[in-house]
Design a protein around this nucleic acid. Sequence first.
DNA 1: TGATTTTTAGAGTAATTACTCTAGAGGTCA
DNA 2: TGACCTCTAGAGTAATTACTCTAAAAATCA
Lengths: 230, 230
Amino acid sequence: MTDTKTRILDAALALFNRFGERNVTTNHIAGELGISPGNLYYHYRNKAAIVSALFDRYREHLLTLLTVPEGPLTWEDKMGYFEGILASMWEGRFLHRDLAHFLHQDPVLRDRYKVFVEDSLARGLGIYQRLRDSGLIEASDEELRALLVNTWVLAASWPGFTHGLNPEISGDETLDRGLLRQGIYQIICLEAPYLRGEALDHLDAMKREYRLDETALDRLFGAVGQVRSE
Amino acid sequence: MTDTKTRILDAALALFNRFGERNVTTNHIAGELGISPGNLYYHYRNKAAIVSALFDRYREHLLTLLTVPEGPLTWEDKMGYFEGILASMWEGRFLHRDLAHFLHQDPVLRDRYKVFVEDSLARGLGIYQRLRDSGLIEASDEELRALLVNTWVLAASWPGFTHGLNPEISGDETLDRGLLRQGIYQIICLEAPYLRGEALDHLDAMKREYRLDETALDRLFGAVGQVRSE
DNA sequence: TGATTTTTAGAGTAATTACTCTAGAGGTCA
DNA sequence: TGACCTCTAGAGTAATTACTCTAAAAATCA
């Protein structure tokens, strides 16, 4: 059995992602674990400390994934890293969803978050530049920077967007996974115009791989999934 | 003097955008206007009713902007509509920021929001298709759909993203405007690869027009503004 | 075993805040 | 003028919820 401290984090993360931090009380977290509120507060001095600890975890994980070993990259590497990064951002989706409030009430987190975004974008740019060196992408530095920011914002916001259209299904493992994959599809489309060589050869296959089929889209998004001209 | 009912809405919108709905109490809104809480509750039966009314306003405004008159489009039309739409989404930024919570606690709003997104995307697709007919854009229907969703998510999330990096400056009119313009720049970059003809001719000018200069970027984003290679 | 530290329970508190209620002011129309 | 309706004030309430406090159980270690 893992220790209480991390069990609290796990339970909090699951509940926050599912219901939103605002709708999850500390008593609720304790209840979920079958422990007392007093016990919870023994491990974390307040609710913000839990959020902060979850942010640490998220940050560490994501920055690790954004550290790519030296050497030329293949499109398979690319997709691998890609999927990991997106999954990690999905895992920490409650953070981006309620970010404004966390930063509003915790100045320390505010600074740390800013540094985190800066780090992530810097590393992301490094990766994109190496993809360019490997001949998988063709774009100017300016294009790369804009693409990177757009990718970041999209990846960070996608869970919130899908949750807005499907608040009820959150927590269902397979459906969540479908939404995540559709997010990957959207980001593939984002960088599609800049792909070259090997990456371009596999573009169509990748699109088919990640794009949800019509019926799934229909179930998840209704009319949004397949925007029709009428 | 406008009537109290709309003054409440105006004050609430300003406060919500600035501090986030969660951090703005009904007493706070009343205090801002110099009226009593009782008076506020005479006009709106609860806080959610204020949010709902603001959503109505936002929805009406945006859908109007997404209704484009018949006939071929020029790139100037395009940029005009564009700026209006983005400004409108900026104006309603608190809605997207705290969307998850609003939808969580108000099932009626949930349904109306979903229809609203569906409508917006349908109209957006119509506009993109007409831009294609006018020779300003070249893309397949599938590309157009993906581009559209990405544009929507980016436009809706951009205010939240910038706010996360600069929580303190919210409310400053000129700085807010700068952030909005940088958002337009990001979206221009999003669709840049698909532009043709007249629109392509003006692409560089448009980029220069909307992109913040280095010093402003520096002030707003710090290291994020000009992501460096190392 | 006994001493000490860590962990847990759970009742209770203090503060916030959305919202209510009553009474009265101000306008309108007969 | 008086009846009536709309609007406003402001004190007060009820419910939520983050968090505290004391004491006891469990683990650790001499």
